[in-house]
């Protein structure tokens, strides 16, 4: 017993520091291996392919072709749709966050909205499409009520759920609650003292909003807008289920390309994917930057 204890302790103490360093590195190898194989490698493959001709030579033709008449309309459609739904989500989400946080509504209203928003912001994909077909489709409840009770023919006036505005409204179902959830902390950060200070200096309500509150909230709001934009840009399942893949936003075109090489050029498909990644990466990065900027006021 007395002999064993030092014997067991010895190799441990004698083990060179080198060994510990090696072991430490081993601890993250599974994670790094996994992310390299299933996250980095696929993207690298696509990015690399985007700069190649089918024969394997380096070229920029694929990227140039993105702005050509075949692909660009899809990007433009995606950008417009994402912009519209993000803008709508931003405005209404921020208004709702304001109403709940500073509007003087009873606390149970806020709790109810918070719970619901957590669910609604995650309620996307195919079921969301079904819900909106039952609401604003040709036989949807709202469409029928407008027609039978108010005598207003929604579809006769050019509305179509399976078109630009229909999709924008459908996206709003997850965009609005997401914006609300993200803006609540920012609204909470608006100190009561600032308002009092502004008022004691003679500022009116609108002046306070224009010169104090909005500049403080602007980085958060802009950051959230970019996140909503990226969120809408990557949406595929909802569009697919609503329009049966007949609405050529970028993700849908890419989906079709993977299914059956509809562009007749695999490398153009890689460029399409690269363009999508770039747009997502830029808006997400700016979101992180702006979020950090916004947190300055929250200490």
């Amino acid at each position: 017993m007395a002999d064993q204890a030092p014997a067991a302790a010895l190799p441990r103490a004698a083990a060179p520091a080198l060994r510990r360093v090696n072991l430490s590195w081993l601890g993250v190898v599974p994670f790094l291996l996994f992310t390299t194989l299933f996250l980095i490698a696929p993207i690298f493959y696509l990015v690399n392919g985007a700069f190649r001709t089918p024969e394997g030579a380096y070229t920029l033709d694929n990227l140039v072709a993105l702005t050509g008449p075949d692909i660009w309309p899809s990007y433009w459609l995606s950008i417009r749709l994402s912009f519209t739904s993000a803008a709508l989500g931003c405005v209404f989400g921020a208004l709702l966050a304001w109403a709940l946080q500073l509007g003087g509504l009873p606390p149970w209203v806020k709790r109810a909205f918070l719970t619901f928003a957590g669910v609604a912001s995650n309620f996307a994909g195919v079921p969301l499409a079904f819900a909106f077909i039952a609401t604003l489709g040709r036989l949807g409840l709202v469409t029928l009520i407008l027609r039978d009770v108010f005598g207003f023919n929604l579809y006769g006036h050019g509305f179509n759920l399976f078109s630009f505005w229909g999709l924008a409204i459908t996206y709003l179902y997850f965009q609005l609650p997401l914006m609300m959830l993200m803006m609540m902390p920012a609204m909470e950060g608006l100190r009561r003292e600032w308002r009092e200070a502004a008022e004691s200096l003679g500022a009116s309500g609108p002046q306070f909003w224009r010169m104090v509150a909005l500049p403080v909230l602007a980085p958060s709001a802009l950051g959230c807008f970019l996140l909503l934009f990226a969120n809408a840009f990557g949406t595929l399942a909802t569009v697919y289920a609503l329009t049966s893949a007949n609405f050529p936003v970028v993700p849908i075109v890419l989906f079709q390309q993977i299914r059956g090489n509809v562009l007749y050029n695999p490398n153009l498909g890689y460029a399409l994917a690269l363009g999508m990644v770039i747009i997502m990466a830029v808006s997400n990065t700016l979101y992180f930057v702006l979020r950090n900027r916004a947190e300055r006021w929250r200490k």
Partner: peptide
């Protein structure tokens, strides 16, 4: 990275 890009890879 959108899922559609991931699965493409």
């Amino acid at each position: 990275i959108p899922p559609v890009v991931l699965v493409f890879g």
